[in-house]
Design a protein around this nucleic acid. Structure first.
Length: 216
DNA sequence: ACATTAAGTGATT
DNA sequence: AATCACTTAATGT
C-alpha cells in the first residue's frame, strides 16, 4: 500500500516545488498520517479541529450542511491541497463551517494547529502556500455559485458528473441517484428523471449504483 | 423465498 | 423543480 517511504517523501512529492526544505523537514516531524476510506467523514460541521489536514493521495469533497442534514457540494480538495477554511478554525478557535468527506481511499497528513500559525511568520513559502490556497478556494467557490445561480439543473448535473469523473479518473461513477441528489441539493426523483433524459440523448449509460459517462 | 434498497412513473402543486 | 404515492427491478440474507 505504501507508495512512499516516509512522510518527508510524501511532502516532497506533493509540495517540494512549493515549500522550502527546512519547512518540509519540520512538517515531516510533526505530521500524523491518516488514511480514510470512501465516504468517510473527515470533518463535520461544528467540529473543533485540533489538526489541519493536507491531502497527499486521493480526494476529499467539501460541502455545506445545515441542521436538517441538507447538503450542498462546494468544491473538491486533491493532492497537495489543504482546506483554507480549516485555518480559520484553528487560529480563531471557531468551529468548522463545512463538512469534509473522503471520496475514495485517501491519504492525509495531519498537522497540529499551533504550528500552522508559527509557520506563517517563519516561512514565506508557507505564507504564499496559504494565500494561494485561499485564492483557489475562492475561485472554486465562485464557480459553484455561478453553477447554482446561472445554470439549469440539467447542466449542473452534467458538470457534476464530469467533475466527478475527472477527479476519480474514471468515466464509471459509482453513485446512487440519491447521493447525486444530496450533493446537488435536489431530490432523487428529479435527478432520476434528468439522468434518464441524458441517457436517452446518448450522453450516459445508467446501471444500478453506477453511471457511465461517454466523455469527460 | 423474503426483505431491503435503488430506480422508474404518473399525478399534483 | 419538488413532493407524494406507488410500482418495478436488483440485490442481500
Amino acid at each position: 500500500m505504501l507508495k512512499f517511504e516516509n512522510k518527508l517523501e510524501m511532502l516532497r512529492e506533493q509540495l517540494g516545488f512549493v515549500l522550502e526544505d527546512a519547512l518540509l523537514e519540520e512538517m515531516a516531524q510533526v505530521a500524523k498520517i491518516r488514511e480514510t476510506s470512501t465516504d468517510e467523514v473527515v470533518v463535520n460541521v461544528g467540529d473543533h479541529l485540533q489538526m489541519i489536514p493536507i491531502v497527499i493521495e486521493g480526494s476529499i469533497k467539501i460541502s455545506r450542511e445545515n441542521k436538517d442534514g441538507d447538503e450542498l457540494l462546494l468544491y473538491y480538495i486533491e493532492g497537495g491541497d489543504t482546506c483554507a477554511m480549516s485555518l480559520q478554525c484553528c487560529t480563531r478557535k471557531i468551529d468548522s463551517q463545512i463538512k469534509a468527506t473522503s471520496m475514495e481511499p485517501s491519504l492525509l497528513l495531519m498537522f497540529p494547529t499551533e504550528y500552522m500559525e508559527r509557520w506563517l511568520d517563519q516561512f514565506k513559502t508557507w505564507r504564499q502556500f496559504i494565500l494561494d490556497s485561499y485564492h483557489t478556494r475562492m475561485l472554486e467557490l465562485m464557480e459553484s455559485i455561478d453553477a447554482i445561480a446561472f445554470m439549469n439543473l440539467d447542466q449542473r448535473l452534467l458538470k457534476y458528473l464530469s467533475d466527478q469523473a475527472k477527479i476519480l479518473g474514471s468515466l464509471e461513477i459509482h453513485l446512487t441517484h440519491q447521493q447525486v441528489a444530496d450533493d446537488l441539493h435536489s431530490s432523487r426523483v428529479v435527478i432520476s428523471r434528468l439522468l434518464k433524459q441524458l441517457e436517452t440523448k446518448g450522453e450516459i449509460k445508467l446501471l444500478r449504483n453506477k453511471i457511465i459517462l461517454n466523455r469527460f
